[in-house]
Amino acid sequence: MGIFDKLKSQARNKGKKSSDSAEQKINERTGGKYEDQIDAGQQRAEGSLGMDRDRERPDQT
């Protein structure tokens, strides 16, 4: 793994952590009332930034 791959991986992990933290805080403030909509928005935002969670999962055969 090259240095740029390592930096990219670290940035992606930090972005996911921040995204998850924001989702949790919003859900707390709304009492979970809009949990599905918030999750869908988070997935769209991560997808547009190239952080799709499904892409990084190993293929299960």
Rank of each mutant, 00 (worst) to 15 (best):
M1W: 06
M1N: 07
M1S: 08
G2A: 08
G2R: 06
I3W: 07
I3R: 08
I3S: 06
I3Y: 06
F4M: 09
F4H: 08
F4L: 05
D5E: 07
K6I: 10
K6R: 11
K6D: 08
L7F: 15
K8S: 11
K8R: 14
K8Y: 09
K8F: 07
S9F: 04
S9I: 01
Q10G: 10
A11G: 03
R12C: 08
R12V: 10
N13W: 14
N13K: 15
N13M: 14
K14P: 11
K14L: 15
K14F: 13
G15H: 08
G15I: 08
G15C: 11
G15P: 04
K16F: 11
K16I: 13
K17R: 13
K17G: 07
S18T: 12
S18N: 11
S18V: 09
S19V: 04
D20W: 04
D20I: 08
D20M: 08
S21E: 11
A22C: 05
A22W: 09
A22H: 06
A22D: 06
E23T: 07
E23D: 05
K25E: 05
K25M: 02
I26S: 04
N27M: 03
R29C: 00
R29H: 03
T30W: 04
T30Q: 02
G31A: 00
Y34T: 04
Y34E: 06
E35L: 03
E35H: 03
E35G: 01
E35F: 00
E35C: 01
D36R: 15
D36L: 15
D36M: 14
D36A: 14
D36T: 15
Q37M: 04
Q37C: 04
I38N: 01
I38C: 02
I38D: 02
D39V: 05
D39S: 07
D39N: 08
D39L: 05
D39Y: 07
D39T: 09
D39A: 04
A40W: 14
A40P: 09
A40Q: 13
A40E: 14
A40L: 10
G41T: 10
G41S: 09
G41D: 12
Q42C: 07
Q42R: 09
Q42F: 07
Q43S: 10
Q43L: 11
R44V: 14
R44H: 12
A45M: 13
A45Y: 07
A45K: 09
E46R: 15
E46H: 09
E46L: 14
G47N: 15
G47M: 14
G47D: 14
G47H: 12
S48I: 15
L49Q: 08
L49D: 03
L49F: 05
G50Y: 00
G50H: 01
G50A: 00
M51H: 03
M51R: 01
M51L: 08
M51P: 00
D52Y: 15
D54L: 06
D54E: 06
D54K: 07
D54P: 00
D54V: 05
R55H: 14
R55C: 13
R55A: 15
E56L: 01
E56P: 00
E56F: 00
E56I: 02
P58Q: 06
P58W: 06
P58T: 04
D59Q: 04
D59N: 01
D59H: 02
D59M: 01
D59K: 01
Q60M: 10
Q60T: 11
Q60A: 11
Q60V: 10
Q60N: 12
Q60Y: 10
Q60E: 06
T61S: 15
